[in-house]
Amino acid sequence: MSLYELLGTVEVGLIFGLVALGAFITFRILDFPDLTVEGSFPLGAAVAAILIVNFGWNPWPATLVAAIAGFGAGFVTAFLNVRFNILHILSGILVSISLYSINLRVMSGPNKPLLGAHTIFSAVQGWGIPAYILSPLLLAVIILSIKVLLDLFLHTGLGMNMRAAGANPAMAAANGVNVGRMKLLGLGMANALTALAGAMFAQSFGAADAYMGIGVIIIGLASVIVGMSILPVRTIAQATLACLFGAMLYRFAVAFSLNADFLGLKASDVQLVTAILVVVTLVGQSSRSGMGKLLKRKSS
C-alpha cells in the first residue's frame, strides 16, 4: 500500500467515523435500530453536490445544509415511530426507500459528478502541501471536533435525558423526560452526522450517487461493534473514540482484503465480508460488552 493509498484510506475511515457516531447514537444510546442512514447518506451527498454544482454555493454552507437535510430525514423516521407507533425498523425502511426517490429527484438523475468543482477540500489546497495530506488533516480536525461536541452534549442535562430515554424509557418518563422528543432529537442528530459524512464523501470521491447508501447501515454498525469490543468503553469519551477507531479499522480491513490478491476478493464482495464480520464479532464476543448483549437480545 502506497502512502497515497494509505492516506486515502485514512480519509474514508475518518468520514465513516461520522457514520459510526450516528450508529452509536441510535443503536447504543437510543436503542433504536435506525435504517434511515441508507437514505440519508446519499441525501447528504446529493444535496451538497447540487448546491455546489447547480447553484454555485460555497461548499461549506452546502455541506451544512446537507447535514440539516439529514436531520430532517431522521426526524421523519422518529416521527413515524413516536407519533404513529410504526415499528422502528419499518419507519427507517419507509424513509430510506422514500429518500431513494427523493435523491433521484434532487439530482435529476442517478448521480452528480463533482470533478473540478469547488469543494471543502479544494479550499485547503495550494499551501505548498499536497492535497492528499491536507485533506485527511482537515477531516481529522472536523471529525475530532464533532466527537468532542457530541461527548459534551451527552454530558448536558439534555444529553443525559437522552441516554436515560434509551436505556430505561419508563424510568426516564417517570423522571420527567419526554422520551418521544428524545428520539426525534437523537435520530435527527444521527442522520445529520450520516448526511454530513455523505456530503464529505461525495466531495472527496468526486461524485454523488443514488446507490452510494447501500450497506451504510452495516458499515456503521460494524464500526461500533468492532471498535467497542476492542477498546475500553467505560466513559462516553472512550465509547465515541472506539467508534471512530472501529470505522478506521474497518476501512483498513477492507483495503487490505481487497489488496490481498490471494484472497481473490472483488470490490463487490465488501458487503458480504462486512456482514460476516459483524456476525463473527457478535458471536465471538459472547455477553462481554453491552453492545453485544443489546443486539443479541434484540434478535432473539
Binding site: 454530558h155 448536558t156 442535562g157 435525558n161 441516554r163 436515560a164 436505556a167 430505561n168 426516564a172 423522571n175
Partner: peptide, 27 residues
C-alpha cells in the same frame, strides 16, 4: 426505578432535572 447504565450520581441528577431541568448546562 433507576437507570443501570448511568452512575449513581447521574441517576440523581436525572431525578433532580424533573423539577429543575438543566437543558444545555452540564447535568
Amino acid at each position: 426505578g433507576t437507570c443501570e447504565d448511568l452512575t449513581i450520581l447521574e441517576n440523581f441528577a436525572l431525578a433532580h432535572g424533573r423539577t429543575q431541568p438543566r437543558g444545555f448546562r452540564f447535568a
